[in-house]
């Protein structure tokens, strides 16, 4: 199978290791990986702030750049959701981009059983967009049978122990531009999230969105805590090495 990687702009610039881990993991699973270098930001920050007209040309560009590919994979729930759920609102009638979030791709498309070892207690941070817009998990507010595609993937990893959080899917407070305009509330939310992982005995906070992890990592560093954050791609790449 061949896929094109959609690497969100902030991953490209700030967390290149997550992009590399994604590529490594996919190649290890026998996937041929392309990276269309002409890609840019998908327009999410503008669209989330209500500036649809500014987001539109970026969306159009994304469609052009990825047009040759049958499958697009992205290690971010919120960027995947932007492309899947919000491009059609910005560009009515335009063709849909066949984009998958990484966990979704591994779980639903590749269905490859992951074997590996990661001897740590892991707290799972279920990011809002992945949970509520991509349905990577059930979401505690809905009365449906409980599931988590990320937890399913991690279940095959030896030594990895998922800790039980008191609030299984509360927002970390990042929220894109929310963290900028609402710094104080955003930090309070992040610190509460960290405290929940600490109480549960987590050594690693793992998640599918680097943006949430970036927020938590910043707070961890400022507060001098030893807990570390890892993107699921990094964790799986390390575990399956």
């Amino acid at each position: 199978m061949e896929v094109a990687l959609f690497i969100p702009c902030y991953v490209d610039q700030l967390y290149p290791q997550v992009g590399m881990a994604t590529a490594t993991l996919l190649e290890r699973l026998g996937v041929k990986v392309h990276f269309p270098e002409a890609q840019t930001c998908c327009g999410q920050p503008m669209a989330n702030s209500g500036f649809f007209d500014d987001a539109r040309p970026l969306a159009a560009r994304m469609l052009r750049v990825f047009e040759p590919y049958q499958v697009v994979v992205c290690p971010s729930g919120s960027c995947t959701s932007m492309v899947r759920n919000h491009f059609p609102e910005l560009l009515p009638g335009a063709p849909r981009l066949p984009v998958y979030e990484l966990v979704e791709f591994l779980h639903d498309v590749l269905k490859a059983p992951l074997r590996g070892r990661f001897p740590f207690r892991v707290g799972l941070h279920q990011s809002c967009h992945g949970l509520r817009e991509l349905r990577l998990g059930s979401g505690s507010e809905r009365l449906v049978p409980a599931f988590s595609k990320t937890a399913d993937l991690l279940a095959g990893i030896e030594g990895l122990q998922l800790v039980e959080l008191s609030r299984s899917d509360e927002c970390c407070g990042f929220g894109g531009t929310f963290a900028v305009t609402e710094e104080a509330v955003s930090c309070a939310m992040g610190r509460d999230r960290i405290a929940d992982h600490e109480r549960a005995g987590a050594e690693v906070i793992a998640g599918g969105d680097v943006s949430c992890l970036m927020h938590l990592e910043g707070l961890l560093r400022r507060d001098g805590k030893r807990l570390r954050t890892m993107h699921v791609a990094e964790l799986l790449a390390e575990a399956t090495a």
Binding site: F178, E182, E183, A184, V185, A188, D192
Partner: peptide, 20 residues
Amino acid sequence: MTAGHPRRALQLVQNPERLH
């Protein structure tokens, strides 16, 4: 969010005991 929310929120946010 409404205008002025970040400023008004400080009243609660800056009091961690009450916030929690």
